[in-house]
Amino acid sequence: MKKLSRRNKEKALIISLALLLVAMMAAFIVPLPYYIESPGGAQDVRTVLSVDGKTDSKDGSYNFTYITMTPATFASLVHAWMTPFTDVYSRNEVTGGASTEDFSRINAFYMETSQNMAEYQALTLAGEDITMDYLGVYVLQIMEDSTFRGILHIADTVTGVNGQRFESSQDLIDYVSKQDLGADVEVTFQSNGKTRTEKGQIIKLENGKNGIGIGLTDHTQVASSHDVAFSTAGIGGPSAGLMFTLSIYTQIADPDLRAGRHIAGSGTIEKDGTVGDIGGIDKKVVSAANSGAEIFFAPDNPVDEKILEVDPKAKNNYQTALEAAKKINTDMVIVPVKTVQDAIDYLKNH
Rank of each mutant, 00 (worst) to 15 (best):
Y249N: 08
S291A: 15
K283E: 01
T274W: 05
Y249W: 09
E270N: 14
G265N: 01
I248K: 12
V285Y: 01
G273Q: 08
G267Y: 10
I252L: 09
N290G: 13
R261I: 06
L257I: 04
L257W: 05
A253E: 04
S291V: 03
L257P: 05
E270H: 14
P255G: 02
E294P: 13
T274R: 15
A293Q: 10
P255A: 00
D256V: 03
S291P: 00
F297C: 09
E294H: 03
I263L: 06
V286M: 10
I248H: 12
G267K: 12
I252Q: 09
D256L: 01
P299L: 11
T274D: 12
A293G: 12
D254I: 07
G280E: 00
P255Q: 06
I295R: 00
G292I: 04
F296W: 12
K271D: 03
A298I: 02
V285K: 05
S291N: 13
K284E: 02
A293C: 14
T268E: 07
N290T: 02
R261P: 11
A289W: 00
A253N: 11
I263S: 02
D282P: 05
G279A: 06
F297E: 07
F297R: 04
V285G: 04
A289I: 03
D272A: 13
D282C: 10
P255H: 06
S247M: 11
V286K: 08
Q251P: 07
G273W: 03
R258F: 01
I269Q: 04
N290K: 14
G276T: 11
P299S: 11
R261C: 05
T250R: 01
A289Q: 04
S247A: 15
G267S: 09
D282G: 13
S291K: 15
T250Y: 01
Q251N: 12
A264Q: 07
F296Y: 15
I269D: 04
K283P: 01
K271E: 13
S291G: 01
F296G: 11
I263F: 04
Q251A: 08
D282H: 08
V275H: 07
G279W: 05
V286G: 06
K271A: 13
P255Y: 03
A289M: 00
A259K: 15
E270A: 15
E270G: 12
E294L: 07
T268L: 08
H262N: 14
D254E: 15
A259M: 09
S291E: 14
D277N: 12
G265F: 00
G273K: 06
I295C: 10
